[in-house]
Design a binder for these strands. Structure first.
Lengths: 244, 244
DNA sequence: CGACTCTTTGATCCCGATCAAGTTCAGTGG
DNA sequence: CCACTGAACTTGATCGGGATCAAAGAGTCG
């Protein structure tokens, strides 16, 4: 993945929710970044460390996770290519959580110094960063609210979300997207056991809702899946820039 | 509650995590606000509406909630006096969630226009607003991660959190704080049934961990409670301003 | 006093956890 | 080319925490 393309992808994410002038857009595209690769299951950011750069995902999928004392791992956010998952680390660099590569991942490290400087020189961009963070927080709120749902509904909801986010990021469509995570990783995302994830996926499959093949998920019955998930996409804050 | 005191409380919250110059602090204290009261269980912000002001809690406790199609209500955030729970609404005014008064609540409405204007004139304040939002997001991440925990641990964790937040906001101490919510409301917070909350609280009580009387919670064995909760306060981002 | 809402208790049920193998398949090395 | 390895997926049996249903106290406010 070349750096300009990834930066453009990040810019697209920002401008999908915020209006930015050409000069401001140039500032984003002019960020100096350094690429770095991580192997599957390796920490991109270790828990309780202080970082001096934010991580822009160039390729692969990364996850923010919270580790409990008993070794239980719960994933609290997923980062797709074009996401700068820890953009908020610019203002609070001491992370309470970790970020891990769910597969081979390439990230572009962007120095906090530069992001901070842009935000100070262009308050509008600072607001865009802030707004970007609210979108992540909104997803998180939905995940927290999913505590009450059944396993079936939770998995369906996740698939709806990743489909839409993939489509938004031009990585696939809402009915066919690349999501090559193991069932064990899925379990850490939705807060279930790998065994139960397996059985639940089988049920969804035999109901003709979703299918997967070599890491690509196919949604065969989107309406049905949305119904099971009780899915309402407004929490993703799509097209905020137009909305208001 | 008089307005200046509430604004000062909000300022204290901001400066506990961000360094702000006297001029910037004056800007916050000079915000024009209008007070408004809400009755128990009444919406302060209804789901899916667009708001033009943020809500600073002057008195009482409010909650952000997510309503599923089946009427299930899940609370995703608690706002204590001095919190401006929906500060983020400045940058994304269309809320996907609602905010409800868990008891008689008094809020000060602060126009987005003014907050936006301050953030543009003083980028440092804009950053402080953004940083404030990350603290809320961090709490949310912890709540999301609590999905896996037992009822016992979840309730213990909540009590540890509210105690610390109350102490931080000078509303009480970590071992004696006002938290007059019904068991049904507690159930909506931790994602359990009111019946099970009742039984679990009884267990915590008979283990000598916590007690409550007329809306005030007393923690009799803080260490014990923290152990049950597997509590680590770093996620609350206390004292960020000193930390870095 | 009657109509609330809130707390408490009891009985039963079920979803998802847990424990334990077995199966498939992509690598890897002899 | 085949045996070996290890991760991921699958299946079965059993267990238990919390949900659900139902109803009885206990405050509290007109």
């Amino acid at each position: 993945m070349d750096k300009p393309q990834t930066l453009r992808r990040f810019l697209t994410r920002l401008t999908s929710r915020s209006v930015m002038s050409p000069i401001e857009q140039e500032a984003i595209l002019g960020l100096s970044v350094s690429a770095r690769k991580y192997r599957t299951n390796h920490d991109i950011v270790s828990p309780k460390t202080t970082v001096e750069h934010a991580c822009l995902i160039a390729e692969g999928i990364a996850a923010r996770y919270d580790q409990s004392a008993r070794g239980q791992r719960q994933i609290t956010a997923l980062y797709l290519p074009g996401d700068m998952g820890d953009l908020h680390s610019v203002v609070s660099p001491k992370a309470a959580w970790g970020i891990v590569a769910l597969m081979p991942v390439e990230v572009l490290e962007v120095p906090h110094r530069e992001l901070m400087s842009i935000a100070m020189r262009h308050p509008t961009v600072g607001m865009a960063f802030w707004r970007d963070g609210t979108a992540d927080a909104s997803i998180l709120a939905k995940w927290a609210a999913n505590a009450r749902r059944s396993a079936r509904s939770r998995l369906a909801h996740l698939m709806c979300e990743i489909g839409l986010r993939s489509e938004m990021a031009k990585l696939g469509t809402r009915t066919a997207f690349h999501f090559p995570v193991s069932q064990h990783q899925l379990a850490d995302i939705v807060g279930l056991t790998a065994v139960h994830v397996n059985r639940t996926l089988q049920a969804l499959r035999s109901d003709g809702l979703i299918r997967s093949h070599q890491g690509t998920v196919f949604v065969d019955d989107l309406e049905g899946l949305r119904k099971v998930a009780d899915f309402d996409d407004s929490y993703l804050l799509l097209g905020l820039a137009k909305g208001q």
